[in-house]
Design a protein around this nucleic acid. Sequence first.
DNA 1: TTGAAAGCGCTAACAC
DNA 2: GTGTTAGCGCTTTCAA
Lengths: 342, 342
Amino acid sequence: MSKVQTGHPTLADVARLAGVSRQTVSNALNNPDLLRADTLERVRQVIEELGYSPNRAARNLRMRSSSLIGLRMHAVQEGTANAAMDRFIHSLVAASEQAGYHVLLFDGVGEDPVTGYADLLRATAVDAFVVTDTFLGNPQAKWLHEHGAPFVAFGRPWDAEAPRHSWVDVDGAAGTRLATEHLVEQGHTRIAWLGWRHDSPIGQDRRTGWEATMRDHGLATDDLDARVLDSVEDAARAAATLLDTAAPTAFVCASDTLAMGVLHTLWIRQIAPGRDVAVVGFDDSQVAQVFPVGLTSVRQPLEDVAVEIVRILSSLLGGRGAQPEGVLLAPTLAVRESSLRA
Amino acid sequence: MSKVQTGHPTLADVARLAGVSRQTVSNALNNPDLLRADTLERVRQVIEELGYSPNRAARNLRMRSSSLIGLRMHAVQEGTANAAMDRFIHSLVAASEQAGYHVLLFDGVGEDPVTGYADLLRATAVDAFVVTDTFLGNPQAKWLHEHGAPFVAFGRPWDAEAPRHSWVDVDGAAGTRLATEHLVEQGHTRIAWLGWRHDSPIGQDRRTGWEATMRDHGLATDDLDARVLDSVEDAARAAATLLDTAAPTAFVCASDTLAMGVLHTLWIRQIAPGRDVAVVGFDDSQVAQVFPVGLTSVRQPLEDVAVEIVRILSSLLGGRGAQPEGVLLAPTLAVRESSLRA
DNA sequence: TTGAAAGCGCTAACAC
DNA sequence: GTGTTAGCGCTTTCAA
């Protein structure tokens, strides 16, 4: 007597209805070329009819893989405009799906920065990770590498000379270079840099784009360089000081948050953004897009970043254990009113 | 001869080392009370020693469940400040983890709005869904209900009198009521509403909070009601018109995007936000938080929403097939300079 | 080209 | 309390 159909159809159900063995059905799905055309057609028809889809858990168990990519998500930092985390996550989800993966989110809570990774890895709940919080001496990357866990980092390993793992990053210096060149084109010569005080390698990188471009154009940078915490208030104060002491006509900022501070000071002083003093931010956050004046901002190509990450991940998981690979992508500049004289 | 230790330790490994049967190890994990204290201790020690964690796929296959909650993620809408999607997603991830679940993201791409759901469901890749795009006649909710898929909606089913599925939502009317009451307290009497033109039930709901509060205070609403598309530019124009025709001293807006438009008009006219004309937005987006003036905004309790959703989901999956449940949560008001006279 | 057998690692049911 | 048996649904040998 045949089993009661409690839930979803299984491979066996399809096989029975199609009058073939289970293996043939499996082949129809995974190695269609092995079947004779008419058999394939018949099996496919039954699959369609039944709305059959291979059980994930069973396949995972057998294949020793989950088709899941783990991504640790942090709490949104309130009061800042920097992270475009949701844009990146969506890009990653879309790119992963193209490659047959799904994204599993886990929480970055707790003291130990690797706990979440360890648990998922030991339980073979995910095939690989995408690590986003890559800073100097990133403990996750180190741990994952040591444990042989496949992963790709969004962000360069700033410390290692010869990185041991693959990464994809956006060229921050190229971004600020774009911004500075754009301002020079607009006729500015006194272009200030507003960066982060506790300077991360990321902040340093972004700063070099401004500095190098200024140098290239023979423009002075003395007194035009300020560093503050990544807050609107601090940026506003720093902008005020800069305006008083160095009279810049343009600001390149390490973040949209800082740019907002500059705009605040301009507003207080009745200085028109764009016409009187130009401002450029970094990240093309929603704030930059929605701010009434329209904040010009460096935009990271997160869609491309995601595609590259998934590509590397696929080759990693595909067994092609190639050399660690680093990909550096160029950002673009979203030009808006805050940097236009018109 | 014993098997080669290729990868992770299994239940059998633990059992062998602890000198017990596999079942005993399983019990140590899932039904600790069944074991004698010393046995439990011994098993636990070996588990610790080996860094053992049950294989997810095997457990999933056996339990016919994945401990995964599916969430469809849409592309970020550029140029608006409304969605606090990342805040919600993180809240959901955190709450899920507390309950032993993880969040699986999939993409909302394609013509057919239920494709992604259907695929995951048929493959038993997820145990349940969280549906966020709940609007009138929501096709996903209908489809999921018809297919007996467990899910909870973030958002009320506006059409049904007796909803067939569980939902959690934020009381939009209560939010705009808070906003309006706050403005009345600040001494405003001519408080305008700036809402959406193609009015969704959500927009209508938010509007009623303003209208009812105005009525309660015996304040006129004629000519103080404008509807536009959800864009900064349209909002700016509408605000200008309202200022000319009805001279409001305060604006309650259906979104932060609209509020930005109002602020833009105020800026152009050299009207000080807060001091001269008050503005309140909706969603407490990053824009509201970072905008130099500080935009007062209705804040959805997304953390609580996530907790409630997971609670309902857990009971749904726990077999307690209770009646569909609806939970309406009250938002709060994040008060900032844009609504303060001081 | 197709079929039969084995087993991935786990837990529910039942014996002891 | 603990051990034995069976089987979740799939894919990878190997044989026909």
